[in-house]
């Protein structure tokens, strides 16, 4: 177990290096850079006087160097204009758009991003778990069809539209302010019960919207897995021996059917980030998603590259955690041995 964990952690290093190179490359694909874009904007609004200030930044951030050198400077493997100063040295980069270090931009958005994603995962699990069990034990009942259908409708509605509609209705019916994480009067105020309630009420819509797309898939998987287990010999044997239906269900099949829940933790992270980008934009939530979107659009390259890299790391860690959890919970899975005998 320990050996396996260490080995997985070690293989993550080259993987991370490749990912960082890939993200940096992708970010730099579009023509031009942040500074050339800003210069054009300033010129067009007749503010040529400020252009000079920007030219200064180009040298400061080594944007005039060739690609691999820029990458190496960013990671901290190569001395930049001011010596070794990159990710490895703890410098996460500079955001041009915000004119702040990247960690100051990303930092405040992280708690909410985590809360929102955790709430969404919780929502997906809480909703799909009972429905999945219900559908499997009462296969082809009206309830089975009804819930499955609802799940699919949630999946089939474009997220942004569902978000818009729910947000509008929440405003019309419950007088919730449009978008945002809380009513505007609480922003920047110290935490209080009212503020927490306001935040909670604003989290409902995004959680549902992001959650619905995952719920249907989860219900389907749980139902299929459980059905498979229920048709197995040992269940029949146990039933023949007079075990109660409830105990029969909970004792073994359910534990087996839980695997997708655990296996999916790693998978959920990137898909939730993708899903929450659009929903966060629509609902005006200060998560990392819209920051990333803006950074990509304005080619604020260090900010965008850092966020992408950060999400990737999270995913890698998530995959590792879910693999380890699976091993703990399911004795049939052997680690390290691989499939070859």
């Amino acid at each position: 177990m320990l050996y396996y964990t260490v080995r997985r952690l070690l293989t993550m290093i080259p993987t991370l290096l490749v990912i960082s190179l890939l993200t940096f490359f992708i970010i730099e694909l579009p023509e031009g850079d942040y500074i050339s874009n800003q210069i054009a904007v300033l010129k067009s609004s007749g503010e040529s006087a400020s252009v000079a200030k920007l030219e200064f930044l180009r040298q400061e951030f080594a944007l005039d160097r060739p690609f691999f050198e820029r990458f190496a400077i960013w990671v901290g493997l190569w001395p930049g204009p001011h010596g070794f100063d990159g990710l490895l040295q703890g410098n996460w980069g500079w955001s041009f758009e915000y004119d702040k270090p990247v960690y100051e931009v990303v930092g405040p958005t992280l708690p909410l991003t985590i809360v929102l994603n955790a709430a969404t995962i919780l929502f997906v699990y809480l909703v799909s778990f009972p429905i999945g069990i219900y559908s499997a034990t009462r296969q082809y009942s009206w309830g089975d069809y009804g819930f499955t259908f609802l799940g699919y409708v949630g999946l089939a509605t474009p997220n942004f539209l569902l978000g818009l509609v729910l947000m509008y209705l929440a405003n019309a019916w419950f007088d919730l302010s449009i978008g945002g994480l809380m009513d505007p009067e609480y922003i920047g105020e110290p935490w209080s019960v009212d503020k927490a309630l306001s935040v909670l009420s604003h989290l409902i819509v995004p959680t549902i919207v992001i959650g619905t797309s995952g719920t249907a898939a989860m219900i389907r998987r749980l139902r299929a897995n459980l059905l498979d287990e229920l048709h197995k010999q040992y269940v029949t044997t146990a039933r023949a021996k007079g075990m109660k239906e409830r105990a029969l269900l909970v004792k073994y099949p359910l534990r087996m059917a839980l695997n997708p829940f655990i296996a999916d933790i790693g998978n959920l992270i990137p898909s939730l980030v993708s899903g929450s980008v659009i929903v966060s934009v629509v609902l005006n939530l200060p998560t990392v998603g819209p920051v990333l979107l803006n950074a990509l659009q304005s080619q604020d390259q260090f900010l965008a590259a850092f966020i992408l890299l950060f999400v990737s790391v999270l995913t890698l860690v998530g995959m590792l955690v879910s693999d380890l959890l699976l091993a703990v919970l399911d004795p049939r899975i052997r680690l390290g041995g691989g499939s070859r005998s």
Binding site: Y168, I178, G179, G180, V281, V282, N284, P290
Partner: peptide, 12 residues
């Protein structure tokens, strides 16, 4: 000034 996505400003 409250920062909101440009598309939401008419609705807000």
């Amino acid at each position: 000034m409250t920062v909101a996505d440009g598309k939401l400003i008419p609705a807000k």
